[in-house]
Design a protein around this nucleic acid. Structure first.
Length: 899
RNA sequence: GGGCGCUUAGCUCAGCUGGUUCAGAGCACCUGCCUUACAAGCAGGGGGUCGGCGGUUCGAAUCCGUCAGCGCCCACCA
């Protein structure tokens, strides 16, 4: 260990031990006879870099897996990365654009080559960073959602679900991301409140004779200066009027009765459209007139289907105005909105504009891009069956959520589940294994679904009329699958349970134990893994789900690049050490609550490292002598600390079982700092340059060893470093695989006695401080009456006492204090300040009398005495007796002092 | 518009099935100490009528109702 610096330096230690653990294969797991404990990592994006959310999440996983390992389980943490279809493709497209290459100028194969290059270049950085954190992943098993086994799994599952009739293809209104130019699932749309405008547009009545009726009672008829009648339509999206194919009113709307059966003219466009009637229209909203654009609004699409309306898609896939529009072709939709408002106004077709707040859907991956409802052909997975198999186990707690409040969220989603749009118009991802067959013009499309071209060909040839089809006549679907269509298989596919059901690995490691992830992906990932788990492995994918919170800054703001409030995790590790940062993360991370990250917490973690380090230095520096007999105070301290340790071992075990890891850490923290360092070590510490006895030293090392084990899951590096220096260890030994002992029976009375002893010591220290007595001056402690406490020698040592005297009355010139009902006093001779002492005693007396009054009031309440349980009443009577006794003591003390 | 959750010390939180482990912890703060393990430390200390109001009860931080504030999730009113 070299020289023992007064400060712990993690930099010398952390890399060394991580390399040691890897070299000795300590992270690796193989099935054996032990109970398995398995965690699969939520795979980070392959080209991502570590952020604070990962730090929290992976610290928790590492704590759980290290603890399980030390509980004797065969612990396995499987790492891997996600191909992150849409996110990665976006990055690659962006980089190509920077090089002046457009995606469209490349073939699929060329593009994928670039994407793989990028993946190999930037991929896996995050896995290296996890090593800095101390993550004890079995790196031999590192997987990728698009590696061979996982890809085969995905295709197999697609074919299987298609054959089961759960996958279908259809023309549907989907959420379209014009930037990524792909369809999205409903879950990938983020709705945000937005301040926008409500535009009121004039739709003139077609072929209006200016002498038309003026309107019945309750009708609202608009006329311009020339007397021409028009309807007013309120819309937030005036740029879509080029796609209007009807106007709709509610047949029961009195103010718009006059529009029934009329035709109106779309402003600027000039197209004449029918006024249709549907109860869908809200009479109260706007003017009660709704423009219907079936191609660009989900509701309008429904109306269009009901009323057989024409559908005019005025947009290009990239969100610019397309050739189907009579106006503004080529203009971006957002620019078009501005321009059309100007033009409408100029044409006198804009009635008014109001401020308006509404929700706009944005793409989860391109947060600045508003999602466009778009009608197109996509692949869908029917979800009803999956919702039915995934809901019960969570609701009846076979599969537990921590915290349980997320059960509600989960249920609400499953009970209102929509079919999952699984196709993406992307190249980076698993290509949909569908093969289209040649068909005649106008004939409905035909396709086969198969694992590969060969099988597809065989399937195709089995179809009547296609007996002689050749491979080059098959057209492989261009689309890729949603990323989550591979990650929902993760807990199964990692053990190759899709391709080889029932193999030795899946049988042993599945179901996994705990999943640690954020609640933001409860639908994307957690729910779907539960579905896939039951469907493809016949059982739950994990027994418990621990939902972490979101990491925010100390002001409660989300961490973001633009705010610059997101610290670089590796930088933090450099400054505070991985152990310090891990502790900083955990100190304020109750399950499910957002954590307000503050660097000060890492500092606290670092300080704790230093505390452990210095405690170690102290014990390491002791000289042992077999000639020294064990002092009584040391013997007692050893006995007592064993009990505290037992109690904490039990407490921590219980807290782990409830995933209350921050409380478990706090329990260990206090055990080490308060009980072990401030009390135990202070008692057994030999006088300067005096040796320690063998029995106490052995016990102390034993305790230190156990404390390090308890701490190891939280702070793996420093604990390994110190543990290696306790006793003899062979190369390859590690605290990682040492066991955390089971708690023995706790002797509560010893703990209570020590609590009293600590209070007495505190009282003496108080006297010493308030009277300015030097720390080394030996004092005598008087106890009025009897002190029935086994730890008197400890009280003497820590109080700096030469004697504890049990007396009938304390000396008049003594500084007294109470512990419970017991009066204790330190004689001060001439040092006493009578006035001060009197004032203190009077204050105590007043408090005791007030306390007595409240107790007696309670006891004089007949209904209390009659109704409350006996134990409670007895408790009150004891309080009463104690208070009376205390008052007596205080009164006597005051009287004595006054003489 | 529906649903869920939260509100306890300056900050972050714990307080399970109502009553001596009921008002707690860590940090921060104040006071005194460079006492040969540690000033990244030691010893001591102050601080909350448990969001407001009402109810149930002998008794409420804890149960019920209500109001206020905050947060999250879901939802096709343009």
């Amino acid at each position: 260990m070299g020289t023992l610096a007064t400060k712990y330096d993690p930099r010398e230690v952390e890399g060394k031990w991580y390399e040691y653990w890897e070299r000795h294969g300590l992270f690796h797991s193989e099935p054996d006879g032990r109970e398995p404990y398995t965690i699969v990592i939520p795979p980070p994006n392959v080209t991502g870099v570590l952020h604070m959310g990962h730090m929290l999440n992976n610290t928790i996983q590492d704590i759980l897996v290290r603890r399980a390992r030390m509980d004797g389980k065969n612990a396995l943490w499987v790492p891997g990365t996600d191909h992150a279809s849409i996110a990665t493709e976006a990055k690659v497209v962006k980089r190509l654009a920077e090089q002046g290459i457009s995606k469209r100028s490349l073939t699929r194969e060329e593009f994928l080559k670039h994407a793989w290059d990028w993946t190999h270049e930037h991929g896996g950085i995050i896995l290296k960073q996890l090593r800095r954190l101390g993550a004890s992943c079995d790196w031999d098993r590192t997987a990728f959602t698009m590696d061979e086994k996982r890809s085969e799994s995905v295709l197999r599952v697609f074919v299987d679900l298609f054959e089961k009739g759960y996958i279908y293809r259809g023309l549907r209104m989907v959420n379209w991301d014009p930037k990524a130019q792909t369809a999205l699932s409903t879950e990938e749309v983020i709705h945000r409140d937005e301040k926008s405008k409500l535009y009121y547009l004039r739709y003139y009545v077609a072929n209006d004779d200016l002498t038309g009726e003026t309107g019945q009672e309750g009708e609202i008829v608009h006329r311009d200066a020339q007397g021409r009648r028009y309807a007013v339509v309120a819309t937030t999206r005036p740029e879509t009027i080029m796609g209007d194919t009807a106007m709709c009113i509610n047949p029961k709307d009195p103010k718009n009765q006059w529009l029934r059966g009329k035709r109106v003219i779309v402003p600027l466009v000039g197209r004449v459209i029918d006024v249709i009637e549907d109860h869908y229209v809200d009479v109260e909203f706007g003017t009660g007139c709704l423009k219907v654009t079936p191609a660009h609004d989900t509701n309008d699409y429904m109306l269009g289907r009901t009323h057989n309306l024409e559908t005019i898609d005025i947009f290009n896939p990239d969100g610019t105005i397309g050739p189907a529009s009579p106006l503004y072709v080529g203009m971006d939709r957002m620019d078009c909105r501005k321009q059309i408002v100007v033009d409408l106004e100029a044409a006198g077709l804009l009635e008014k504009v109001e401020d308006y707040e509404n929700k706009v859907g944005y793409s989860e991956r391109n947060p600045d891009t508003a999602v466009e409802p778009r009608l197109c052909m996509q692949w869908f997975l029917k979800m009803k069956h999956f919702a039915e198999i995934a809901l019960p186990p969570v609701m009846n707690d076979e599969l537990k959520f921590y915290p349980p409040k997320y059960k509600n969220t989960y249920r609400a989603w499953l009970e209102n589940i929509q079919d999952w749009c699984i196709s993406r118009q992307l190249w980076w991802g698993h290509r949909i294994p569908a093969y289209f067959l040649p068909t005649a013009e106008g004939e409905e499309e035909r396709y086969v679904v198969a694992m590969n071209e060969e099988q597809a060909l065989a399937k195709a040839r089995a179809l009547p009329g296609y007996e002689n089809i050749t491979a080059d006549q098959l057209r492989h679907d261009e689309d890729a699958l949603d990323t989550w269509f591979s990650s929902w298989l993760w807990p199964v596919s990692l053990f190759d349970g899709i391709n080889h059901p029932g193999n030795a690995e899946i049988s042993y490691y599945y179901p996994t134990a705990d999943l640690v992830t954020g609640p933001d992906i409860i639908f994307f990932w957690v729910a779907r893994m539960i579905m896939a788990g039951y469907e493809f492995a016949g059982d739950m994918p994990f027994r418990n789900v621990y939902f972490t919170g979101i990491v925010r800054d100390k002001l409660g703001r989300k961490m973001s690049k633009s705010l610059g409030n997101s610290p670089d995790p590796i930088g933090l590790i450099d400054r505070f050490g991985a152990d310090g940062v891990r502790m900083g993360m955990m100190l304020s991370a109750p399950a499910g609550n957002d954590i307000l990250f503050d660097e000060a917490l890492c500092e606290q973690g670092r300080n704790f490292n230093n505390k452990i380090w210095n405690a170690f230095r102290l014990v390491k520096g002791w000289q042992v002598s077999d000639d020294v007999e064990q002092p009584e105070h040391s013997r007692l301290a050893v006995e007592w600390f064993g009990q505290v340790l037992n109690a904490t071992l039990a407490e921590v075990k219980d807290l782990f079982s409830k995933f209350r890891l921050n409380e478990a850490l706090m329990a260990v923290y206090r055990l080490f700092w308060e009980e072990f360092s401030a009390w135990y070590l202070e008692v057994v510490k030999p006088a300067y340059e005096h040796p320690i006895d063998r029995a106490t030293l052995d016990a102390t090392w034993h305790y230190f060893d156990t404390l390090l084990r308890l701490l190891h899951p939280f702070m793996p590096f420093i604990t390994e470093e110190l543990w290696q220096h306790i006793g003899e260890h062979a190369d390859g030994d590690s605290i990682m695989t040492a066991r955390i002992p089971e708690a023995g029976q706790v002797n509560e009375s010893l703990l209570a006695a020590m609590a009293q002893a600590k209070e007495i010591v505190g009282g003496v220290r108080n006297v010493r401080k308030s009277k300015n007595l030097p720390p080394r001056e030996a004092l005598t402690l008087q106890v009025v009456g009897q002190l029935d406490n086994p730890f008197k020698p400890i009280i003497c040592k820590l109080g700096g006492l030469e004697a504890i005297a049990e007396v009938e009355a304390k000396e008049a010139t003594a500084a007294s204090f109470l512990v419970g009902t017991l009066e204790l006093a330190v004689p001060l001779g001439n040092n006493i300040n009578v006035e001060e002492e009197l004032a203190k005693l009077e204050a105590d007396l007043a408090y005791a009398r007030g306390f007595l009054a409240t107790v007696e009031k309670k006891l004089s309440n007949e209904r209390f005495v009659a109704n409350a349980p006996e134990a409670v009443v007895a408790g009150e009577r004891k309080k009463q007796a104690d208070a009376l006794s205390r008052i007596e003591t205080l009164t006597a003390a005051i009287a004595a002092l006054k003489q």
